[in-house]
Design a protein around this nucleic acid. Structure first.
Lengths: 213, 213, 213, 213
DNA sequence: GATGAATGAGTATTCATTCAT
DNA sequence: CATGAATGAATACTCATTCAT
């Protein structure tokens, strides 16, 4: 019946989907979601406006799929199902991993933080995260889960670390200071102009590791 | 008609200007600049769309004036003309001041960080002078100036501090870690839901002061 | 506060609303709802596309309001709250009234019958007519009510008429034949080209009255 | 390859043509011509969009061919070449035949009446010849011919009938009333929901025959 | 023949901005 | 000063149609 030559077609489709998502992501991140026009994306991809609608139901759906794809990848990076216990070396590895992901998916995280800064988006994605657990689209609670997971693991780490040491550090305080420093570094890195920035981010990562390991 | 009323008129005009800017600021911060419609602002102010154009040449101009007004205030807060040397107590005062400003102008800073995160806006609004052409205070690059000023003062502070201490701390490292922690706190505070957040920001400020003073 | 000079403004608005509805109705009836473009309507009205959206939320809403307006008028014509009993003279008056309404609102009825011939519209407007009785928009059950009302009144009329006569007519049969003839006349009249038609509709009305009175 | 298969191929092609036309007809009738999308039709047929364009030059052409196919069939039903004279039994047969055709081709007639009710379509599709250019039966105005033919035959019938009777009926009046009743019945039948309708159409046909035979 | 990815002209709708009152 | 009706450029989205495979 169907001469759909092969399953290569599926591959080609998948490639085009990703092509569109890649360009859209970059434009969304650079100019903002609202300010990016569909035909801009099309032009950057070298395809027609119409084709984008063969792959994505709407501009918003395109955005959601981008977020989805990226967060799913992040999950895999973090191997979320491992034992959840961190040794000192794993702690260092974790921090370097975070920074590596920021670097590799810089554009995505730029977009992601932009979005999180709008009340409605925040509510849509984060606070409404009480969505059914069997959800397959993997957006809303993905974030909450990720944050909770990370906080739990780190909380554990700092508790054990302060127990051993005699410095009388408060584990919660350590955790909070560390978390805040990491967020500060993240934001600074994501939205600095790599060429003109006075910061050497690799060194700052070393600094943080040195300080909190 | 009478000379009196003309003075009062000016006051009324100024009040209305501020009314519009206040509502616009809140809406811009909550929903984003692009997503906020002029008639939304008008409705929230209880005035007509047309009136807004009596006070501001365009939506963009409205945004610029909001940024300008707030940054001018921030400058005054920081008393930019003082000697530029910080004692330990002044350092603590400085941090608390930062947090106080964040608290008092929370909405503005929410908007401000949103804007900073869009490349085009960053280039258009921030680097290319924010001040209106007729202003007399004439800071050509408000933000850059502010950041440089703060960094300078702090840099000085940490240099002197590490000189005194015998810990062998690197002043630049200290400065960077401090700056990053402050930025992390800022972001976390601005975009957390004050009612549901697990963080007690006052305490975190104490923590930071304790750590870096 | 508001210099909305007078309530003349309201009148002007109402006039423009009606202007738009009139032109839209004609175009919808002539070319069909889907085939009529908003900017066609705008051009015919001598206004801009945008203005139409100041008065009507969407093309579909415009259609609904047209139907609504017309059906409401029809209701008034029929004085639906009168006693519901027809004498012979009232019967004749009723038929002439029907024809008069068809004539005066010819364009509307053309549109109306067109719409009724699409399954979805039929279901939307007629079969779903079990909508809450307190409805204020007056569309869905308006039609059903009107039909029921007319059928009831006529049913009554034919029952009484055949009782009196000795011809042994069946009242239901009479009603049905009459109703069908009326519908046939209606359709023929609405969709004939008045200039070229071989039918003289006034005479046919006389014929029907003569036959069924 | 073999000559046999080429004949079979023709059959298969013809079957597929008809398959497409059948589904298209139903969808056109239910949702309207404009509102029916080509890919809807394709999906309903279980074929690709592209294939439809192998059989029909355009959506409009598809419509025209549907109309053409059905009208050609109708012509055959009515045996257009007979003597043109109706006996009483033939008159009854004629009416039952009309109703039978309505029943068998209900969907087509639904579509047909819809089309007739749009001025532009009326002009484009009906008056300007429906037949494909290569057809040999060459009726330039199928509908007009059909209507005229029917009216002629019936006119004759009623003339002769009233001549015989002593009731003093006007043959033209009788014809008109009859024609209108038939049209009313037609419309009522075509656009009623067969399941919920209060009318028993078989009985109404009997009624009409009884009345006008 | 058959497919469905790709195209792009066409259309509804939005919204900053203007201007007569 | 204040209004809100009016404008029209901009933009998301649709869908008939094409064509390489």
């Amino acid at each position: 019946m169907s001469p759909k030559s092969s399953k290569q077609l599926e591959e080609i489709k998948e490639k085009k989907r990703n092509l569109i998502m890649d360009h859209a992501l970059r434009l969304f991140a650079e100019n903002g979601f609202q300010a990016t026009r569909i035909d801009q994306i099309a032009k950057h991809c070298g395809v027609s406006k119409g084709l984008i609608y063969n792959y994505f139901a709407s501009k918003e759906e395109l955005l959601k799929e981008i977020i989805n794809r990226s967060l799913t990848e992040v999950y895999q990076y973090f191997d979320i199902n491992r034992d959840g216990y961190l040794t000192e070396d794993e702690f260092e590895y974790f921090i370097r991993q975070v920074f590596r992901i920021l670097k590799e998916k810089r554009t995505f995280w730029q977009l992601f933080f932009q979005l999180l800064m709008q009340k409605e988006v925040r509510e849509e994605f984060i606070n409404h995260s009480v969505t059914p657990p069997d959800i397959n689209s993997g957006e809303p609670d993905v974030i909450q889960n990720l944050e909770n997971y990370v906080l739990n693991v780190l909380s554990d780490y700092f508790r054990k670390k302060t127990e051993k040491s005699a410095d009388g550090y408060d584990p919660l305080s350590e955790l909070i200071l560390f978390a805040i420093a990491l967020k500060g570094l993240t934001i600074t890195y994501l939205f600095s102009d790599e060429k003109t920035s006075i910061f050497d981010f690799e060194k700052i990562v070393d600094l943080i590791i040195e300080k909190y390991k």
